[in-house]
Computed example of a mutant assay.
Amino acid sequence: MNERKISIEQHSGIGMLWFGGWLFSIGYLNLGFWQGLLGLLIWPYFLGVHFMPVAG
């Protein structure tokens, strides 16, 4: 029989860090609910654009 190894990784720490940063940003900028929700969708894009030169 062909044995395969299964690797399970949990990355919840990074997700919690991202969520905490999002909540901090909303509170620091005094955003309302709808602006905060919009920030939830747009913030990852701007982070990706900012860190893209570093990643190569």
Rank of each mutant, 00 (worst) to 15 (best):
M1K: 07
M1R: 06
E3T: 06
R4D: 06
R4E: 07
R4S: 07
R4Q: 04
K5M: 03
K5E: 09
I8E: 08
E9H: 12
E9W: 11
E9P: 02
E9S: 09
Q10A: 13
Q10F: 11
S12V: 08
S12R: 04
I14M: 14
I14N: 15
L17G: 04
W18I: 07
G20P: 01
G20K: 10
G20D: 12
G21S: 07
W22F: 15
L23N: 08
L23F: 08
F24K: 10
F24Q: 05
I26T: 08
G27W: 12
G27Q: 08
Y28F: 15
Y28V: 12
Y28K: 15
N30C: 05
N30K: 04
N30E: 12
L31N: 09
L31R: 03
G32S: 05
G32Q: 02
F33G: 02
W34F: 03
Q35Y: 11
Q35V: 15
Q35A: 12
G36V: 00
L38G: 02
L38A: 14
L38V: 06
G39I: 13
L40S: 04
L41F: 13
L41K: 04
W43S: 09
W43Y: 13
P44D: 13
F46N: 01
L47A: 12
L47T: 03
L47V: 15
G48E: 05
V49C: 01
V49L: 07
H50A: 14
F51K: 10
V54I: 11
V54F: 14
A55Q: 15
A55V: 14
G56S: 09
